[in-house]
Design a protein around this nucleic acid. Structure first.
Lengths: 209, 209
DNA sequence: CTTATGACCATTATCGTATTCTGGTCATAA
DNA sequence: TTATGACCAGAATACGATAATGGTCATAAG
């Protein structure tokens, strides 16, 4: 009987194991015994921290979402103009998804289909938090007169939804293409979206033609 | 032995049958005998018009795409300003997809997974044609000075890609939500995209604040 | 007393096989 | 020349027997 340093530590260790096995085998082929062996603890111990295999997977997904949220907050608090930060955030969201899909490869479908129903509500919650961070930056931009100030909340949600769509999880890794290519395509759309948000006539207009 | 009126007529009749059976049973459970019975011809006759079941499905998908293309051309040639027409076209694309997904319900996954590989190339071709029509309207707008004239081709492709993403076929009908709700959400994004395309400082700016 | 463990069990998944079904062909009919 | 359905090889399915797995809990360790 080994003494576990901290309650949260072992939770994280287990989730690390989940991450490894999920990428290697997918959800269905990852057994609780595999996982216990990977982490180096007994199977029963896992059930002291998670009530079921499904909740385990959901907790793992939550952790991924939290990391993305952290990254978005970093960017939001970081340097750059409001549109620049927003642009980086949107790109980060899509690339984060890209990395997830490639990391879990075919096994992502397996995971998602196994926990699809309970996942929907959680995703909504994640998306709302992310939209909230986007909204902050939008508000920043409004305060500086860069963005027009109408419909901030709705705009943020639209941006979240759109960037979700740009790389649906359901894509298999095989159909993704190169990361660079994706980045380029997404950048085009994101720029278009941002331009749409910008305030009309931003300063002394130099009319051409 | 019944005399078929016209070669194209029977082709269309068969595809009508495909449409009906696909919606009812999906691709795998739709048998060639079912289809022959539905259309009221012998099984062998189908093979006089289509080389295989797979090609049959692809032809059916082609026909759907052609109808959408027709609709887009209608809108493009119809009344309204360039941005208005563009907006209608983008919305039409998404709603067209919505209708497909709801029409074939669960059975769409079945169809798509059964012909996924050969479908990819065809979809690319369809998308290019659709992008070409969008590009026409964009060019119209440029000629009138509504849109900025850079990157028309790329913009059209971006719009196609983005509206594709807004409603991936892989969504099951169950997750779609209401058509009205979709229309509303998509309208928001489409408007954002269009605003991004508009030319800056379009006339005497009335600066607020 | 709290925390960790793995043998244990009911349920689920997997596999092998016997059987049915179905895409595609073609000799025959109209 | 055009249409048809009996026919066949190979694919899908149904099913029962067997193996694997999620979750529990009495026991052990600290």
């Amino acid at each position: 009987m080994r003494k576990i340093a901290q309650r949260d530590d072992i939770r994280d260790l287990i989730l690390d194991g989940v991450d490894a096995l999920l990428a290697r085998f997918g959800f269905r082929k990852m057994t609780m015994e595999d996982l216990a062996r990977e982490v180096g603890i007994g199977k029963g111990t896992i059930y002291l921290h998670f009530p079921s295999k499904e909740e385990l997977a959901l907790a793992h997904i939550d952790r991924i979402a939290e990391r993305l949220l952290l990254r978005l907050r970093e960017i939001a608090a970081g340097p750059g103009s409001s549109p620049e930060r927003l642009r980086r955030m949107l790109l980060a969201r899509v690339l984060h998804r890209f990395d997830s899909v490639t990391h879990y490869s075919q096994n992502l479908d397996d995971l998602l289909s196994s926990v699809r129903t309970p996942l929907l509500a959680r995703r909504r919650a994640h998306f709302e938090k992310e939209a909230a961070v986007l909204a902050e930056v939008l508000r920043d931009g409004c305060a500086q007169g860069v963005f027009c100030s109408a419909e901030i909340r709705a705009s943020a949600q639209a941006l979240v939804w759109c960037t979700n769509s740009l790389l649906p999880f359901s894509l298999s890794a095989r159909e993704l293409g190169e990361r660079d290519e994706l980045e380029q395509r997404v950048t085009g759309i994101v720029d278009l979206l941002l331009k749409g948000l910008l305030r009309r006539s931003p300063g002394p207009s130099k009319r051409r033609r």
